[in-house]
């Protein structure tokens, strides 16, 4: 126990999370190599730009999902949120260009509000987040179907620019998504709130003892999740020209995949949003590659399931002894 000098600090050892990020990048690289070998059309810049664009929706939902999972929770209402918010977006705008801004603002506010209710449910009912958000999901799905049983409304000309416009070949929406990820990653690292999100997921009891704002943080992550669901819904409406009451169903469980593939632990407190972005790209590259191989969607599903299995099995840390 001698007085240490700072220079004595040990050689740099990457944290497990950094190693996982490395693995995901490596895996993406492997897929790209395989793709380039199989077909010369794969490794073209136009194709990469498509992959980049195609990752947008999943990356957006999963950004919010990452935050809830980092606190040790989960949001299973994301699918229904997207469904409801997407029918509302196109249904209320209904082709009227002057309504675009107010409706989008309202939809985002509603997404945040739904998230706040989820968060309050988790905090004050003290029920497992899975059950709170499952219940919320059912209610929202019902409301979405009450509003419209099928595709509703339409969007004015030019609304599709949101999803499809490109600058210098780069999809604008995908780039905005990346910027959002960088912003959230920065805030997670550099704000007290971000720190508190990690702490809450890591050791909830300790966070309470230290007087960290556990409740506020919990409500915040579900609210942010709602916010990103709203963005996803608006993006989907822009992409498909209309919203429909089942538009989001696919995302409920799907949004968890990039998160866990990106190395965030379902038990909370470990991982980060950048991993999720890489996870979303990995899935996007994989699907694109399988398309090139003329593999049917069914095989894509299988591949995706296997990736989850492999990823989570590989990431599991050796069980700590009692």
């Amino acid at each position: 126990m001698s007085i240490s000098s700072p220079a004595k600090s040990p050689t740099f050892r990457p944290s497990p999370h950094v190693i996982r990020l490395g693995l995901v990048v490596l895996f993406i690289a492997v897929l790209i190599v395989i793709g380039s070998v199989l077909t010369d059309r794969f490794a073209r810049s136009t194709n990469f730009l498509n992959i980049y664009e195609q990752s947008t929706d999943l990356a957006l939902v999963s950004l919010g999902q990452t935050l809830t999972i980092l606190t040790g929770g989960i949001d299973l209402s994301v699918g229904s949120q997207i469904s409801l918010l997407s029918v509302l977006t196109s249904g209320l705008i209904n082709g009227d260009g002057s309504l675009v801004l107010p409706v989008c603002a309202g939809v985002i506010a509603l997404g945040v509000l739904i998230g706040v209710v989820n968060g309050l449910g988790v905090v004050f009912l003290r029920i497992h987040p899975l059950i709170v958000t499952l219940g919320m999901g059912a209610v929202l799905q019902g409301v979405a179907l009450l509003y419209a049983l099928g595709p509703a409304g339409s969007t004015p000309d030019g609304f599709d620019a949101l999803a499809y416009s490109r600058v210098g070949g780069l999809s604008v929406s995908a780039t905005i998504t990346v910027l959002l990820y960088l912003l959230v990653a920065f805030l997670m690292r550099r704000t007290a709130t971000g720190r508190a999100i990690y702490a809450t997921g890591d050791e909830p009891a300790a966070a309470v003892l230290l007087g960290l704002p556990v409740r506020r943080v919990t409500v915040l992550v579900y609210a942010l999740c709602g916010f990103f669901c709203a963005l996803t819904a608006i993006y989907l409406v822009s992409r498909f020209g209309t919203g429909q009451p089942y538009a989001g169903t696919y995302y409920t469980l799907e949004s968890v995949t990039p998160v866990v593939v990106g190395g965030t632990m379902l038990s909370g407190g470990r991982g980060g949003v950048i991993g999720t972005l890489l996870g979303a790209y990995l899935l996007s590259v994989l699907n694109n590659l399988l398309n090139f191989m003329h593999v049917s969607t069914q095989i894509q599903l299988i591949a995706q399931g296997l990736i989850i299995m492999v990823a989570v099995s590989a990431y599991v840390e050796r069980k700590k002894v009692a």
Partner: peptide
């Protein structure tokens, strides 16, 4: 096996097998 031998969380293990099974069925 995934849950007990690999300590995968049940949520993920069964989610993954759900997806794989769905793919196999579609195929």
């Amino acid at each position: 096996l995934l849950v007990t031998k690999r300590q995968v969380s049940p949520f993920l293990a069964t989610l993954a097998s759900m997806i794989v099974l769905q793919g196999l069925r579609f195929a």
